[in-house]
Design a protein around this nucleic acid. Structure first.
Lengths: 220, 220, 220, 220
DNA sequence: TATGAATGAGCGTTCATTCAT
DNA sequence: AATGAATGAACGCTCATTCAT
């Protein structure tokens, strides 16, 4: 059920062979390490290849150019993230509103924190390609899962689950991204969790208040 | 009272003379244009100087290097932003909670949208220097104004206005930044406004619910 | 036994491969030519690479920067020079004082004149790096060989062969360097040879006169 | 009697006015300081002007370009040096050979050491312009004074005082220049003095031996 | 298929020189 | 006469990309 299979976004080569797959994985891993070690502007293809233990030539056999490599790295990251969120959301169907809000926040935090170093590494690349479809697509996919949770909620109903879900996804992910990128770690995770829960829960409650008719049938 | 005066962050040179000031302004403007035209990675000092109508040498008379130029541009942007927010917040003291939430969201949207092209241009540079103090400092300053609004709120009291304010600032600005950077303009501003209002209002209401004792005196 | 082997002074890269060695040699040769053609101040890495028939990038694969290139060129030159002197000195052991003085001068002149264009080219670079260990080290090495000659001299003995040798080396090399650098060629080589012979011979004779006790045993 | 008056070498401007003269002097002084502080390659006209307390524009009013400035600085240095030597040589007429040799060495050492920082600073510039007439001319002038001393020597006569004198000048100055440029100060001045005395004295004695006829008349 | 030396356009930066003030 | 902001050619150096091995 994981949505990684058909990678519709990237001009990836064929990781069909066993060796190839390992090489590509090594290049991804190396990219992250280089990103964290020297930053995006100083990430060079040679450096990535070196760190991956292959030659530059080999890198160029899997990626047509630097940009494609970066986009693949981002894509893979977003893909992983969305899959995590998908899995997390599966346990949140038919929950009361409060539990749902709490659970969603936990799912997002878990997804980001699970791969915190990668998340941090992605900050700059995401900004360069942020205007591209990649990020938007991932957000929409994640919002789809969240929308399903909202629709199945026992004690609440909304008229526009999709927009609500998208906003929740955007708010949570950008807030977390900002928090993670902040090297000074000025906000502690647990405080962040509490506040994000309040924010999401409050948001959903307000949203409900604005659409009172739709609740009538349910609550009765 | 505006806080722009003493620029404490940047290694700016001396735009004291009449002409100098114009040159520096032209360089800032040109930086924005280049950023929008070719992106951060392709922004070169030569290109900026050209667009500003001066020679590279002149650029280097005002900025010791490319990085300093970028940081100054960012600093100026953040400064302007914070000043706008400061001004906007001054009208929001002693308002009831609902008006405050609504007003805050409007202030943030106004501040970002007023200089939307610059905001869009800043997306990449902010990511590179996002880990630095610059952004953090600006956020904290803005949060200070918001905290004051929260403290003066007529029908609500909170135990931790500063953290609440910081979260509101972070949530609003990162959400808006994301929305602005999204070239597809997938979310319309007015929808965004409505939802952000719900989010902030709901957040503050939830926050109050968690600190009920402090309300006792006031509501009586 | 030649002392070129372990190049202890320069941050040279690895001219291990067959091609590499040729490239490095070409770069050395090109450096000399550029030095002679346009002078030290106008020697640019691009110019050297061009003259060597490679690209700048290639140059930078062998030398980390311009300075390293120049130091390598100097080092190689001094090394060659010292090796020539070493070889020349080997034939001068156990000679009577007059023959020794004459021979030493001939050895120095031969060493410098054999590579006169290179010697001329080195004049400016040597001045920039003259304060560094390079030149000093070379002088001391050469002085070592000369000191050995002095010690083995049949009809003379000195108390401080090492200082004497160092002065002879310094006097001869700086005199020759000056003569070679003088484009007007105002002094003809053979006149120079004659006078330098007198100078060295006279110097050694004076030195002996000042240390008469040590001669007693020998002359008897 | 000093030979500085008619400066036949340099394209100097008119230091006629009081102010001008002071400015030029300040520029010379500043050049030396910059040379010592940052080296020849990093000496820039702006830096020199700054250190002299004037603007670049002013510098260019006195010197048509960087090269002219440097040449003037060198010229002035050599001029001073030659004047010192001239003065020193005046006391050495009609002295016996040994005193003359000793005295000459002392004169050279005094001249160089008196302005040791300047001498050190001149090392690099001299190399760049060393091929020019400047140095040669100075050497020839100094050799003229020395030749006169040789001619007036009481107990010796030479057939070619001018060549002898030139060699002495060249040997002494290049040896001293080398010693001064050597930052490690590996040879102590007094040792150097002793050895140079031996060298010059020995040289003159050898030279005499080769021209015996001319001595006959005198010594009788 | 993998390698890594070679390429060279292009970058950030400097600095001799000019000229309007 | 003095200033110093402006100029822009030229420098040292990097790095994405290619291709002979």
């Amino acid at each position: 059920m994981a949505s990684r299979q058909q990678s519709l976004l990237s001009p990836r080569k064929r990781p069909v062979q066993a060796r190839s797959e390992a090489t590509v994985a090594a290049l991804f891993e190396a990219s992250i390490q280089v990103l964290l070690a020297v930053g995006y502007r100083k990430l060079t293809t040679t450096r990535v290849a070196e760190r991956a233990g292959v030659s530059v030539g080999t890198l160029y056999q899997y990626f047509p150019n630097r940009q494609a490599l970066m986009m693949s790295v981002i894509e893979r990251y977003l893909d992983d993230l969305v899959c995590s969120i998908e899995r997390g959301c599966q346990d949140l169907n038919e929950r009361p509103l409060e539990e749902l809000a709490t659970g969603l926040v936990d799912v997002f935090i878990a997804a980001k924190w699970m791969r915190i170093t990668v998340s941090r590494a992605m900050h700059e690349p995401l900004a360069e390609f942020g205007d591209a479809k990649l990020v938007r697509t991932a957000a929409v996919r994640a919002a789809g899962f969240v929308a399903r949770n909202l629709q199945s909620c026992r004690d609440a109903a909304f008229g526009d689950e999709h927009l609500l879900a998208l906003l929740i996804v955007m708010a949570c992910s950008s807030l977390l991204q900002t928090a993670i990128a902040d090297q000074t770690q000025s906000i502690d995770v647990e405080a962040l969790r509490t506040h994000m829960r309040s924010m999401v829960l409050g948001y959903l409650r307000e949203a409900q208040r604005l659409e009172p008719r739709r609740n009538a049938g349910r609550s009765g």
